[in-house]
Computed example of a mutant assay.
Amino acid sequence: MILLGSLVNGLAIVVGSLLGAILRNISETMKDTVTKGIGLGVLALGIQMSFKTSSFIVILISLCIGAMIGEGIALEDKMNSFGLTLEKRYAKPGSNFAEGFVTASLIFVIGSMGIIGAIESGVANNHQILFTKAVMDGFLSIMLTATLGMGVLFSAVPVMLYQGIIAILASVLMRYIPKELLDLLMREISAIGGLMMLGIGLNIMGVTKIRVSNYLPGILILILIVTVQFYM
């Protein structure tokens, strides 16, 4: 079952969010300290991932073009709008439901583990990477929900869709992609994802308000550039 890893990952987020809702009465100082600790962890992960690139120029070009596309189509605004729609339906007015949904979705979706794990699920029916990611996301969703509210729970949906689609595509397409190109793509995707994780970490800590969602098209631009370079 190639979707097992994605389903387990989504279930872990749901369970973690429900536990986080129960723990929402913990003190604000504890929430703040733990949340900033999560931010530091995300920063460290982002730094680690970003150094995997073999060409920072390609990463920066992809990131900038992706940012222009993201701003042009107002990607972050659309994500926030979707979160606000869910907030009106499922949350109390004035809550930070949308922020929780967008922040958690970005944290759980961006990163090499989700991509590589989904590919492993699709190609080899091996779910170990996604099972490991599920444990990490489950614990992280507890604190995110305790801090940002039940919007975090709904992030399980894009996580399952994103990883599930990659797993299905991988099962069909990866047999036609040279291993050298696949390894190169995974390394560069991890690097550009690391830069986005840095932005997320800074946002979590309250240092910046970077519109990270608008950088996401940069991943597609990066795949295009790397593929063209590989065959030149």
Rank of each mutant, 00 (worst) to 15 (best):
R89G: 03
S121A: 13
G83S: 05
S50R: 05
A74V: 07
N96M: 06
V34Y: 11
T53C: 08
M49Q: 13
P93M: 00
G100Y: 02
G83F: 01
S55E: 11
I57D: 13
T53M: 08
L60H: 11
G100N: 07
A44D: 02
E71G: 08
Q48N: 13
I47V: 14
H127T: 15
T53H: 09
E71D: 09
M68W: 11
V123S: 04
K92S: 12
L40Q: 08
G66A: 05
V123N: 09
F131P: 09
F101S: 00
K78E: 03
T103S: 08
K52D: 14
I107H: 04
A74H: 13
V58F: 15
A67C: 05
A118V: 06
K52Q: 14
I119Q: 06
N125Q: 12
S54E: 12
Y90G: 07
E120F: 13
S105N: 06
I115F: 06
N80A: 01
S55L: 08
S62V: 14
V102G: 00
P93T: 13
L84K: 06
K52Y: 14
K88T: 15
Y90K: 12
G72I: 03
I129S: 09
G83K: 00
A104V: 09
G37A: 12
K36F: 10
N126K: 14
S81K: 03
S112H: 03
I69L: 09
G117K: 02
G100S: 06
G72T: 10
M49R: 06
M68F: 15
N96C: 05
N80F: 00
P93A: 01
E99R: 10
G41F: 14
I107R: 02
F108E: 04
A124R: 15
V109L: 00
T132C: 11
A134M: 04
G83P: 02
G41Q: 11
G66R: 07
I38Y: 15
T85P: 00
A74C: 04
G100Q: 02
G114C: 01
G46V: 06
A134F: 12
R89N: 05
N96R: 12
V34I: 15
N125A: 11
I69Y: 10
A91F: 06
T53F: 08
I59L: 10
A74M: 07
I69H: 13
A134H: 09
E99F: 07
G37L: 09
A91M: 05
L75F: 05
S62I: 13
V42W: 03
G72M: 02
I116V: 15
T103C: 00
I59H: 07
N126D: 15
S105L: 01
I129Y: 07
G66L: 01
G122P: 04
G111W: 01
S121K: 04
